[in-house]
Design a binder for these strands. Sequence first.
DNA 1: GTCTATATGGCGATAGAC
DNA 2: GTCTATCGCCATATAGAC
Lengths: 199, 199
Amino acid sequence: MDSSTEEKIYEAARRIFILKGMEGARMQEIADEAGMNKALLHYYFRSKENLFKAVFKDIFTKFFLKVKDTLFSDVSAKEKLIVFIDNYVDLIQSNPYVPQFIINEINRDPKVLKTLMFESGIEPQKLLEIFLNKVQLNNQSKLDPRHIVISLLGMLVFPFVARPLLQMVYFNDDKVAYDRFLNERKDIVKNMIFKFIEA
Amino acid sequence: MDSSTEEKIYEAARRIFILKGMEGARMQEIADEAGMNKALLHYYFRSKENLFKAVFKDIFTKFFLKVKDTLFSDVSAKEKLIVFIDNYVDLIQSNPYVPQFIINEINRDPKVLKTLMFESGIEPQKLLEIFLNKVQLNNQSKLDPRHIVISLLGMLVFPFVARPLLQMVYFNDDKVAYDRFLNERKDIVKNMIFKFIEA
DNA sequence: GTCTATATGGCGATAGAC
DNA sequence: GTCTATCGCCATATAGAC
């Protein structure tokens, strides 16, 4: 790694903040992770709050933007949904602590959300549109498509954020078995959603 | 309130810890909430860690035990599920910050879970049993009922823990509209689950 | 730019009067 | 049991040498 000092700090902060959150993280810990002195963090980013905001904005936007394009391809709604679910689960699997991190911080300080959403380029409506047409097509005009979106996201995210509890009570704390279970889930969730909207 | 000093501390700590978590809460804040001096907290509970553990154990067990009996009534699986969903959503609605709190703390320190589960009297298997019979009945023997349980819990819990984000992006930050939406959800979720397991 | 040393403030915890 | 005052530590932040 011959990246600049600022980049090293940024990457180290990213890792530590995701694992410990804003309150749990220590500037000393981030400095250690970056392999440098604590004072440098303040030289480049003036305060912990500053450093955190920069990192959080980055994590937040990147996390959603990575699956954004799956919603813009020129295929059927069903195809789009399949690709979205596959990619979204892959995304969480390679960033397993990020959903929990985001949920935590938006609850701790909901104000940042407002400013963040406008600058982010995220388009949550695109996910809604998949079901909007689909639902109307099947004469379920009374069904609010937001219920489907939120059900979908809940089914996908929950097994990751509640992992310690679920793995313990339903898998005898068998980590390998739980990972296998998570892999099966893509198809299970697709099935549940399809059965529901195609009825 | 003429409850004992210890009870006042306990109740105050309960409220503050749920809102701020172990790391976010301050002993001074809890003392203020209880209307007394900080030193008294240490007189009764010796340390913050002690106080937190007592409170967490209480919140954790009570939260799950409140819906436990819904799984023991002598009715059909379908009836049982309906009652469970109704009561579980009611429970979260009157304790909206508890799921987030529990998820947070079990991720921060998963060790406490093991000791807690044995003493708690919680029986997570009972929820599983509902779907175990149901699924076998419909020749879906290949379907792991844990997928249904976790999907169900995810659908119910997610709209509460991710509320700030969801309310903002899908409800223009309209609190009243979001509450209305949450009330509709009981029946929506029942429907989704039934459609899936009765196929 | 990068380091060491130190200031500054806050928090958990305790001592001791009443 | 309950209070005030204070200790001791740790975390953020800064000063200043190099």
